[in-house]
Simulated scan of single mutants.
Amino acid sequence: MGKQLTEKVSWVGKVDWELTKFHGDEYSTHRGSSYNSYLVRDQKTVLIDTVWQPFDKEFVSRLKQEIDLKSIDYIVMNHNEVDHSGALPELMREIPNTPIYCTVNGAKIIKGHYHQEWNFVTVKTGDTLDLGDSKLVFVEAPMLHWPDTMFTYMTGENILFSNDAFGQHYATESLYNDTVDQAELFTEALKYYANILTPFSKFVTKKIHEVLDLKLPVNLICPSHGVIWKKNPTAIVKQYLKWADNYQENQVTLVYDTMWNSTRKMAEAIALGIWDTDSSITVKLMNSAKEDKNDILSEVFRSKAILIGSSTINNGYLYSIGGILEMIKGLKFKNKRAAAFGSYGWSGEAVKQLTEELEKSGFQIVNPGHRALWVPSEDELLNCREYGRQFAASLS
């Protein structure tokens, strides 16, 4: 079961190649995921994190092949969302008195999930656990991305067990960052940050600087999903600092839904106008009724500006746009501009409503938006193209 990382540390997790959805249906996992659990064997033995509940019996069974469970002296739970703590009940049936090290909030969450009074040992930043030759040093990291989150640093081996931070939903049997497709890895790492950690960027920046100020040597960063950062491990830390700093690329993304293709035609004409003005801008068009919602949000994260388009229906906008707007609002993007567009036949309220929602979500509104009545004529498509030129000019 285990894969040796160092003389003292083994990976004992689960690679889930079949996973396609996560957080219910909120997050798409096109490339599967992994639930990384780590076994530390010094003079004392520690299990760091477990796996998701559907794999609890498999996890415990394989762990038994690796080690006598009764020889596990401590369990460390860095974060207790069910994809990390789900195997705890099955494990604790075997070793019910084993101390579980976690934050105060961690103990509350475990009790809330499993309604068990296990042997909790609560820790705070700076607390240590002596294993013999090495020590575990605990660092609270609340809101990265839950209130209970903490990092665990192992001295001697110079390993940072970072839980969700620096992770990705990415299945690989080879474990390390330098053994996988780099384009895939970057895509999944950015998607993970954009869709999960963006609302907590100020906490990300603060916590990373706090850890960097400790000047700890880092040979490995071991998150709870995806690859282990072995080659140049702190590169992902530097990337997080960039992503946390109101990130944007030279990109404009148009997100739209359309009933009879009129709004789609508008989107394409506006895109041409943007290209007319500045061919260096990356312009992407995404139909919210057809594209994956998390991929859309990743492109919004990359963008310096977005345009949201919808036909008007029942005095409002189309439901797929409503869902994307709700997710955008929750992610609290910063330092981005926006406007709205859309076709209509009767009343035409959608553009005004979209503009209001974008403003509520923290976007700087470029203009009141652009509407087209019924099916856009050739002249109207030229107007849309000119609107795109003006929108692009406003970004310079």
Rank of each mutant, 00 (worst) to 15 (best):
W275Q: 15
Y101H: 12
L307N: 03
I100F: 15
L216P: 04
E356V: 11
S224F: 07
K352I: 05
E386Q: 13
L325A: 09
A165W: 00
S201V: 01
T20H: 07
K207R: 12
F161D: 06
N294E: 05
S310R: 10
Q53I: 14
Q43W: 03
V204W: 09
M266L: 14
A107V: 03
W374G: 15
S28R: 08
H23I: 11
I75C: 06
N315A: 05
E378S: 10
D25G: 09
S61M: 05
G2M: 00
V12P: 04
R385P: 01
V51E: 00
G348T: 00
M327L: 12
S85W: 03
N78Y: 07
F161M: 05
V255S: 04
S34N: 09
S162A: 04
V137T: 08
L358P: 07
G112A: 12
H145T: 07
T152V: 13
N367K: 10
Y74R: 11
A338F: 04
Y317V: 05
L190K: 15
E7D: 08
A393P: 03
E140I: 09
G24T: 11
W146R: 12
F363D: 09
G342L: 05
I228K: 09
T20C: 02
M266E: 13
A340C: 00
D25R: 02
M154A: 02
S347M: 06
V104C: 06
L220P: 02
L63M: 04
L88G: 05
E58F: 08
V123H: 10
R264T: 10
E7C: 04
K334I: 09
M154P: 00
P142W: 07
E117G: 06
I313Q: 15
E357Y: 10
V15E: 06
F151A: 08
G24Y: 01
Y35T: 06
G309Y: 12
N294K: 11
W346G: 04
R389H: 09
E188G: 01
N195Q: 04
F391L: 10
W11L: 08
L69D: 05
C102H: 08
V12T: 03
I110F: 05
F341A: 02
S71R: 13
Y101D: 08
P99E: 09
W275I: 15
G32R: 11
H169T: 12
S224T: 12
C102Q: 00
I321L: 03
K304G: 07
K202L: 14
W346A: 13
S298A: 15
E188M: 03
T179N: 02
L88Y: 07
K215Q: 14
I159L: 11
N219R: 07
N78R: 13
V60A: 06
A269H: 00
T50H: 01
R371I: 14
E268D: 04
K284G: 07
V375M: 06
A141K: 02
N97G: 13
K332L: 05
D295K: 12
G330R: 13
P96M: 09
S288P: 08
D49T: 11
H370R: 07
